[in-house]
């Protein structure tokens, strides 16, 4: 992905900035310009916490070219404790142990790099919550 395309999303990919509709309180990640629940156009920005719950999941065994050499890896939809849902990899856990309802925490990780000379894209992946 060309550098400008990833750069303009750093508030979201690096800091998990989400938005809350001032009209109906619905939360969005990434932020939107129009609320799809109440058509509101006023939002407040907030930083999500790192906690969430696995809503569904799979194991990718035949990835696209950008993820060559990384399979198998798990991907899931995470319902963040702060409202929005997001799709991301679930890492540092045996693939067969991932379950719907599993509590996870987001960690800062490399998402992918464009070839050997492109920008490295950073973001967040989920790891099982262990205390």
């Amino acid at each position: 992905m060309p550098s400008a395309r990833s750069w303009r999303a750093y508030p979201q990919t690096y800091r998990l900035e989400a938005s809350r509709c001032s009209g109906c309180q619905k939360t969005f990640f990434p932020p939107r310009q129009v609320c799809n629940a109440c058509s509101g156009r006023e939002f407040e920005t907030f930083r999500m916490g790192y906690g969430g719950t696995v809503v569904t999941h799979t194991v990718i065994r035949t990835p696209g070219d950008q993820f060559q050499g990384e399979a198998p890896f798990a991907v899931g939809i995470i319902a963040m404790d702060d409202g929005p849902k997001m799709t991301t990899q679930i890492v540092d856990v045996p693939l067969e142990e991932i379950r719907i309802g599993m509590k996870v925490k987001l960690e800062f990780r490399r998402m992918y790099a464009e070839g050997h000379d492109g920008v490295i894209e950073y973001g967040h992946k989920a790891v099982p919550l262990r205390e």
Partner: peptide, 16 residues
Amino acid sequence: PALDEDTITLSVEAVR
């Protein structure tokens, strides 16, 4: 470190 961990990712977690 895993494929998706490097000095930057480890450091962000440490600073947090």
